[in-house]
Every structure is written in C-alpha cells, then in structure tokens.
Computed example of a mutant assay.
Amino acid sequence: MMVNPQWLRSFAVLAERGNFTRTAEQLNLTQAAVSQHIRNLEHQYGSLLIRHHRHVELTPAGTALLEYFREVERASRALDARLNADQLEVGDISLVTPGSIGLALYPLLLDYQQAHPGLIIRHRFAPDSEVLEAVLSNRFEMGIVTFKPQDERIESQTFTEEPLELILPAAHPYAGFETLLELGFVDHPDGVGMATRLLSRRYPDTPGMRAIQAKGFSNQVGLILEPVSRGLGFTVLPRFARLAFHQQDKLQVVEGGNPVVDTLWLIYRSEWPLSSRASRVIERMQERLNANHR
C-alpha cells in the first residue's frame, strides 16, 4: 500500500523535531493537521509514537517507518540527480553546517538564490555530529564538518580552512596573558576547548584556561561576541563567526604565536556524486569566501 507522502513527511519531521509544535511550524501546518496525519498513519501501521509531555519517542514500528521514509528519500534523490543533472538553476540545494561557517555561507546562498530564482535553498545550523547524521540519513545532500569522517558511506573533500581567533574588546589595551586574566572569558559550547587549544600555543608557560574566570556564556553563535563588544570579557572563536558580527569596530583580534587552523570538510553520501547544481553552488561559495576573506 502506498503511503501518503504528506503524512510521511509530517511523521519524519516529527521524528526529527521531537514535538508537534515545532513540526507544525516547520511544515507551515496547524498542529491539528500534523496530528491527523499521524493518526492516519497509525490507523494503517499501529502505534508509531510514545507520547511524553514535551516530546515523542518512536516505537519499533515508528523506527521502521522512518527508515522506509529515508529509503524513499535516498531513491528520490538518486533519481533526481540522474534525470536532472543538467538543470543547474532549478531544484533543491540542501546544506547543513556548524555555526561559524554557516554564518558566512547563508548570506552567500541567499545571494545565489536571488540570482537563480528556480533554486530552493535549505540550510540548517548543527554541530558536527548532527551534520554527519543529517547527511547519512539523506535529510540533507551536503554538510560541512570540522573533521574528516572515517565512514565508507561518506565522501569528503576539503572545503576551506578557518583559523581560531583570540578576540578582545577594541577599547581594552592588550598587554599579554595578564589582560586575559583581567577581562575574564565569555564562554560558548565549544569555548573552553577552542580557547585551550589556542592559548596553549600562545602562552605555553602560563596556567591557561584554569586560571581565567568565566564572565558569561551564550549558545547562540551570532550573540557570543555581543558581551565582548561591550567590554565584558574576551573569547575565542573561528574566524567566520567573528567576521559575521555586525560591529567589527568594537572588537580587536590579537595575532601572534603559532596559529590554530582547522580544515573544514564538505561531505556527502558516497553512493552517488553530488548533483551538478550542488557542485556548482559549492564552487561559487568557495570563490566568494576566497574573494571576501583574502
């Protein structure tokens, strides 16, 4: 029996998002419509979800149905790549990335879409582990990660490089490690790890992050530099995150020592090549990044 594709899409998004409210928002449907789609599927296949107060959990039947959806998506994408390889300016472009490079790429993707209105751009911010899972499950054709996956199902190629930067308030005079002690650290989800990597190279004979007081925390990559710009502390971030901040004149980047530079990897499923339009978009994004940040 054929599964209604709209019902199946609602179920797959619900499995990803975890609750009905976020699912309805993503699909631009009412919660009642999403609930009806799930009821229709459960009428055919039995219980698919365990409903908790704030989230849902898949039953074994739900897991099987989700895998079926992903197989259909894989087949559809492979067919689309084969039949529409020459359609460079029409179709879906889907990319999932970590925050820093995403801040740099998303405006460029929108510029490209404006120039090619037949394209549909889907971009999602996610940490490395979720990027890999999203590509493996075929929810996104492409992803960018900060490590080279060791998985035979994944093809990877160098996308660009991105150094870590030591970022201070522009108005605060810099006089070495003592300045960092004085300012304190504005943390973020990867903050201590990034700062430890960079400061251990810059100041090898100091106690490093163990001696520095935390002065704040944000998990929103676009907001981490706001307290720094106000003189409330320093932080360490990848360069593209700093370049996306709207008040560059209120920041100073402290250079020196051996740089810490991460390679960013473009990943996609190894079973078939990227669509021609996806390859073209990636080439244009690399050209724009190189031109903008020389």
Rank of each mutant, 00 (worst) to 15 (best):
L103E: 14
A104E: 06
Y106P: 00
Q113R: 14
H116F: 08
R122L: 02
R122D: 04
R122P: 00
H123P: 01
H123Y: 07
R124T: 03
S129Q: 12
S129C: 00
L132K: 09
E141R: 12
E141W: 08
G143L: 01
K148L: 12
D151Q: 06
R153C: 11
E155A: 14
S156N: 12
S156Y: 10
Q157C: 04
Q157V: 10
F159H: 07
E161T: 15
L164I: 04
E165C: 13
L168P: 08
A171M: 03
H172E: 15
P173W: 10
A175P: 00
F177L: 04
E178S: 13
E178W: 04
E178F: 01
L180I: 10
L181G: 12
E182A: 13
G184I: 03
V186I: 15
V186Q: 13
G193K: 03
G193C: 08
M194G: 03
M194P: 00
A195K: 06
T196G: 04
T196F: 01
R197N: 11
R201W: 03
Y203T: 09
P204G: 11
R210S: 15
A211L: 10
Q213Y: 02
F217E: 11
N219Q: 10
P227T: 06
R230S: 09
R230V: 01
R230P: 01
G231Q: 04
G233T: 02
G233M: 03
